[in-house]
Design a protein around this nucleic acid. Structure first.
Lengths: 390, 390
DNA sequence: TTAGATAGTAAGCTTTACTTACAAAGTAGT
DNA sequence: ACTACTTTGTAAGTAAAGCTTACTATCTAA
């Protein structure tokens, strides 16, 4: 639904435009901002004064003259404010205080009690983080698995079905008095990679997160594709294997039964058991780290398992490229430890399913943000909405 | 890239908001518009006065009182202006003059000369349509196959490679002095169906056009997904058949070799030839209409061909639903003549590839606009941009 | 030393939506 | 029928925010 436009919104948008211009430039003068944004110099001066009164922008000294009065350079003070991020994607809730560059300043964990998540645990975590933050808070960002109504910040359904229709955004905003934003963890990860992952000039990006589960986050034209009512990027239970294994969802051959870290571990365990390998008794004893070791040792059968996992991802990747016309793909999560071999397997399958010209054009990489990707993404969520940084 | 906001833009957006509100309501009073849009009554009065001076809105009489002065009802005068639409998807360029309801008032064709398209042919067609229009022109919309840079209205590459980087929008705007918009034909079709196809309250829709080629148009949150740099919805050459037939693109088993109208005709022809059916000699003599006849006569082998075509579409549809989380799908183009049997085949494959709950939720229908879908879509393109009707 | 260029600011203008107030025209209760 | 109250639509003035014009402070270059 469209909405009316007021003067106040005009101001907010232009302030965001100036903020973004300074953010992107690093250091820039008022006059240059005016040229770039096509706002007039007086307007820019006025907006900058507002940002400086919030300590968000600081003057950092004169640049050399270009034929007249020397320009005073402006910079975003990334230490002026903090954001708080929460990553609920593991049984060990993780939260952090970050600066405006998306750098983690302080980090805490809260493990589920009685093997169940609870809102109280989140509040306990955020309480502690609020106390740890030493700057004014810009906002709180949350990345969580499950189906999220991002527009209203409501957790419509979490995977474990413990939570339904929890108005998390509202709860956080009321309790802490700052803006809060909630998104699916994979979508947050994609936004994080897009914002902080050195994607020079790229406006469209898909990030496929592969860990316990598998999900995709899609950034189109610099914006997250949310998808209603089911959520975009819910690719874990698309069938990619004919006559595949039974999945926890009830289906057979879902992507998660082929390519998730657990699926890989399970298959490698079966492999070792079949060999009668004395090193292994239960699946719990074959960790993903151990699989990576075996893989890097060059175990041929393990490589085949990994290759199959990569091709499963390739199937979905091919459709993402074909359907959306986006050709920047990055993979995040535990499987990044496997390395380039995985990407080759992905591409192998893409070449089979797409026009070769298209498949060649696709850029397959690993995400650069590591295990903090969801935290940084949740922070990016706040930065995007509050500062309009892209 | 973000842009600055001016007072003028504020005005434009609020005028569009009022226009859309009246358009959607059919008949509505100023006071009611103010309540719906949350603009104030004086502002609405002012904007309505502007729209009335353009004859775009007219007063149509009093409604009964609801406890006070009777409200004066307003309506969009759909005959106040015309749009011109061009459909370049066949070797017989089609153009039309439409009213603001998207109804075709006048239609003309221009057949390719020497089996080649040409810009002159377009200009000739539009010249004639401009002369035929009896109202002021709101704008010109074009739906054309190929890769389109919709933001700039440039035909980056047409399928037949005759055209590359043709700045069609600019050419039309300079020649006719009215706004012009260019989009891919399948995307235009999707926007047309979204705008005029009775999608009550739905904000996300995928339209899959199946004719000579196959393409999808994706509407997310009321907006067309354009996709850069390759274009979204280019699904014709995704591989859906293992060991499939050779495609004109060089690949094997592309969707177009399985599910396009030509593919169906070709397979039915092969079938009849194998049978030694005396009715058929060359593929040209087996038209798609003839295939439909045979299908409706209940020819079992023809049904199997159609079923395979449906399942090919189902594969891609499953990924569209899975990846985008959009569950309204409509099919357009020649294959609509086949009827519900096709949709059943599509769903059959979707059930196999998706969580059954998801596949059940998917709404599969045929588009309602028939063969004018691209024309109406091109018109919708103009309405969306100029009037902000959605 | 001077002419010209550039950066930043100050004061007033313009656009546009909002506020307040009011007239016109209806309903409902007495 | 009269009064009190609602609702619609408009008029006049106010407020927000970007724009225009003009000015000062510097700096470069001839």
């Amino acid at each position: 639904m469209k909405k009316k436009v007021t003067h106040e919104q005009t101001r907010v948008l232009n302030r965001q435009l100036v903020t973004k211009t300074i953010y992107d430039a690093g250091e820039i003068s008022r006059a240059e901002v005016a040229r770039v944004t096509r706002l007039t110099r007086p307007t820019v001066s006025d907006l900058v004064a507002e940002l400086m009164s919030q300590r968000l922008v600081v003057e950092v000294g004169y640049a050399p003259s270009t034929g007249g009065k020397r320009p005073m350079l402006l910079r975003i003070d990334a230490d002026a404010q903090n954001t708080i991020s929460i990553d609920l994607s593991r049984k060990d809730f993780c939260g952090a205080v970050l600066d405006l560059r998306g750098e983690v300043q302080h980090r805490e964990y809260r493990r589920w009690r009685n093997d169940r998540p609870s809102l109280d645990l989140i509040f306990e975590l955020v309480d502690s983080l609020v106390a740890a933050a030493d700057r004014p808070l810009l906002g709180i960002g949350v990345g969580t698995p499950g189906l999220i109504d991002a527009a209203h910040g409501v957790v419509v359904a979490a995977v474990n079905q413990e939570w339904t229709n929890v108005p998390l955004r509202q709860l956080l905003e009321e309790r802490y008095g700052v803006p809060a934003y909630v998104a699916n963890d994979c979508q947050a990860a994609a936004l994080g990679e897009f914002t902080f992952g050195n994607v020079n000039g790229v406006q469209d990006l898909v990030v496929i997160s592969v860990g316990w589960g598998i999900g995709a986050g899609i950034v189109v034209n610099g914006q997250l594709l949310h998808g209603t009512p089911f959520g975009a990027g819910e690719i874990g239970h698309i069938v990619v294997a004919e006559n595949g294994e039974r999945c926890s969802c009830g289906g057979f051959g879902c992507l998660e039964t082929v390519s998730s870290s657990q699926a890989i571990v399970r298959q490698v365990h079966a492999l070792l058991a079949r060999r009668g390998d004395p090193r292994v008794i239960s699946p719990e004893q074959v960790s993903f780290d151990r699989v990576c070791e075996l893989f890097h040792e060059g175990d041929a059968e393990v490589r085949e398992v990994v290759r199959a996992a990569g091709r499963g991802l390739g199937t979905v990747a091919a459709y993402l490229v074909g359907v959306l016309g986006i050709y920047h793909l990055r993979f995040a999560g535990q499987v990044t430890a496997i390395g380039p071999f995985l990407l080759e397997a992905v591409r192998e399958e893409m070449v089979r399913l797409l026009l070769p010209a298209l498949a060649d054009e696709a850029q397959l990489e690993f995400a650069t943000l590591g295990s903090d990707i969801v935290l940084k993404g949740a922070s990016a969520l706040v930065l995007h909405h509050e500062l309009g940084v892209l």
